[in-house]
């Protein structure tokens, strides 16, 4: 009985009916947090002693880069759920997360390049973290491309799952090798275990924005998942009733 909360997720219909409400909550919450965090960070937080105003791109770059990595982990969890419990919804989530993850990775690369120009003097360096982000983007592209090559969604989902799991095992090795190869990027300013290396007037808006972007990502993924569920279940009776009734 204790597993009920988990097995509910096996029903696409159950998910579809509730996801709309979750999406609405996420959407408003993200909007409020992002407006607050961005206005505070861009308008009112103090300037940095070395980088001046250009450091403010941190309020976009850091949350987006966090998400790029977190979404890959989320995708891997979905792959495990897909293989162990054969849950269709996990595959739908994998598909939606791959697209969102690629978008966030691309955004973090672009915002990083814009930041790199004034601080490092170049848009792109073959630095460890930049390179591993680029490779992460390629891994996401692989998951998207592999899915597109199959006609049968179940088969596509399983193939993607294998790819993602192999990628997850390999990611730490890639990260380690690339770091050994070249490092220029500064260490992370925000760590869960340590005191942040910036004053509260700078990191509070950053934290708000990180939270905001996480919730915004949830909003995007939920929306995309809802659409995918409808498409995959288009032959199910409840979907027909839903479409005809509307």
């Amino acid at each position: 009985m204790g597993w009920r909360w988990f097995h509910q997720w096996g029903s696409p219909r159950w998910f579809y009916e509730r996801a709309r409400r979750w999406q609405l909550v996420c959407g408003w919450l993200a909007l409020i947090l992002l407006t607050l965090g961005s206005l505070w960070g861009l308008g009112f937080a103090p300037v940095d002693y070395q980088q001046g105003n250009s450091y403010r791109i941190i309020y976009l770059h850091v949350p987006v880069a966090f998400l790029a990595q977190a979404l890959y982990a989320a995708m891997a969890v979905c792959a495990i759920v897909l293989f162990v419990w054969k849950m269709k919804l996990a595959d739908v989530a994998m598909q939606s997360i791959a697209v969102a993850g690629f978008a966030f990775t691309a955004l973090s690369l672009i915002s990083g390049a814009v930041w790199g120009k004034p601080t490092w003097g170049t848009y792109w360096v073959w630095d460890a973290r930049l390179t591993s982000m680029l490779i992460l983007a390629f891994l996401y592209l692989g998951a998207i491309g592999l899915r597109a090559a199959f006609q049968d969604p179940d088969q596509a989902g399983k193939a993607c799952g294998i790819l993602i799991l192999v990628g997850v095992v390999n990611l730490p090795i890639i990260k380690y090798s690339v770091e050994w190869w070249n490092t220029l990027h500064q260490p992370a300013s925000l760590k869960l275990t340590e005191k942040p290396t910036m004053p509260a007037s700078m990191w509070i808006p950053l934290l708000i924005n990180i939270l905001g972007y996480y919730i915004a990502a949830a909003y995007l993924v939920l929306g995309s998942m809802r659409a995918t569920v409808l498409e995959r279940e288009r032959r199910a009776i409840w979907v027909r009733e839903l479409v005809n009734g509307a």
Partner: peptide, 15 residues
């Protein structure tokens, strides 16, 4: 030559 900026961010007055 590449500048390596550190992970410390602080307002000028604090500096």
């Amino acid at each position: 030559v590449l500048a390596k900026h550190d992970e410390n961010y602080m307002p000028p007055e604090v500096t």
